[in-house]
């Protein structure tokens, strides 16, 4: 029986965005990462090829993380005290890119300074050839204080700077524009707010191929379904041709999953939760895979084992061949 397979023909295409720049393009990265370009829903290879598979970022912090699960600290060992070594370890673990997160304090517990930020970013750039996402602690004043000098000091690297949020995006966008970087915009799980921020950022003159959006998601068990549906809706709108939703999406299942009680706490929890370390990694992996199904272009993870698993899943999803 011949069956006519329903094929979606979409008028829209997700923007193609390249993260990082090699020496030839004014940066120092040995490898760049290109995301986006989809003309179909995720992995519908029978409709259109997926030009760029989703990529995996590993998150690391500029100073030893104070609030990470012990499972993660055990997995990484003492590299967490040295950003350069940590970055190298991330690369070794198989990350496509690195997300460097600044907190409010430096390694000695003092408030972060522009010098500390620039020094750390430079050390990480030195230690790895992977593209880099640099995020401030999320307080407008501090973000602007450290991201502007970081942007200046790394001109041409095509870093992704963030977070641009509704209340604070102008300074970050301006410094990205002046130095050839990209920005990451985050909005709280809402299609319209995401669109609105994208409009505002492009209004400043930043081209669309230099913006990545984080529509925000929840962890498995903690609201993943909202993020999941918002992502599906954003991607559908993008394919339907709505330019302000055609940005590649970056989400952070690592952060979300590892701050749940299930991943963070090993004692005093029900037996029915099973082994702590395995549970934490499963929690992260399931969250990440689900979000990839919903259209994520970049998933940010925290556990090295999750990288391997999610990588296998992406590889499998990228082919129509049977196992």
């Amino acid at each position: 029986m011949p069956i006519e397979i329903p094929v979606d023909k979409w008028p829209g295409t997700v923007n193609t965005v390249t993260l990082g720049a090699t020496a030839a393009d004014g940066g120092t990265r040995s490898k760049v990462v290109t995301i986006g370009g989809e003309r179909s829903l995720p992995f519908m290879h029978f409709e259109n090829e997926t030009p760029h598979p989703p990529v995996i970022a590993l998150e690391m912090t500029a100073a030893r993380p104070g609030d990470w699960s012990q499972v993660l600290l055990d997995a990484w060992g003492d590299v967490v005290d040295d950003p350069a070594r940590w970055a190298g370890a991330c690369e070794e673990a198989g990350a496509d890119l690195i997300l460097l997160m600044f907190g409010l304090n430096d390694a000695d517990g003092n408030p972060v300074t522009p010098d500390f930020a620039v020094g750390t970013v430079k050390a990480v750039l030195q230690a790895t050839g992977l593209p880099l996402v640099v995020l401030g602690p999320g307080q407008a004043e501090v973000d602007n204080e450290i991201l502007v000098p970081v942007a200046d000091a790394t001109k041409g690297e095509r870093l992704v700077l963030g977070l641009c949020e509704d209340a604070n995006y102008r300074t970050i966008v301006a410094s990205a524009m002046a130095n050839g970087h990209l920005v990451l915009g985050r909005t709280p799980m809402d299609v319209n707010l995401a669109k609105q921020l994208n409009i505002l950022m492009t209004d400043m003159g930043l081209p669309l191929d230099r913006i990545v959006m984080d529509p925000t998601t929840g962890a498995l068990g903690y609201g993943i379904e909202y993020g999941y549906s918002v992502m599906e809706r954003l991607r559908l709108a993008a394919l339907q041709g709505d330019a302000m939703t055609q940005l590649p999406m970056l989400v952070n299942p690592g952060y979300e999953a590892w701050r749940t009680k299930e991943s963070k706490v090993g004692e005093g929890v029900p037996d029915t939760w099973g082994d702590w370390a395995a549970r934490g990694t499963h929690w992260e992996t399931l969250t990440a895979v689900s979000l990839i199904e919903a259209g994520a272009d970049v998933v940010v993870l925290r556990h090295p084992d999750s990288v391997t698993r999610v990588r296998e899943a992406i590889d499998e999803l990228m082919t129509l061949e049977t196992a």
Partner: peptide
Amino acid sequence: STLAAHAICKYAGFVVVDTFAPELIYPI
């Protein structure tokens, strides 16, 4: 874990796993 997540998101009516381990079954 990844295959089960995939099957749940994308349309399976029944999802079959071989391993019974609470740390895997709970998140699924």
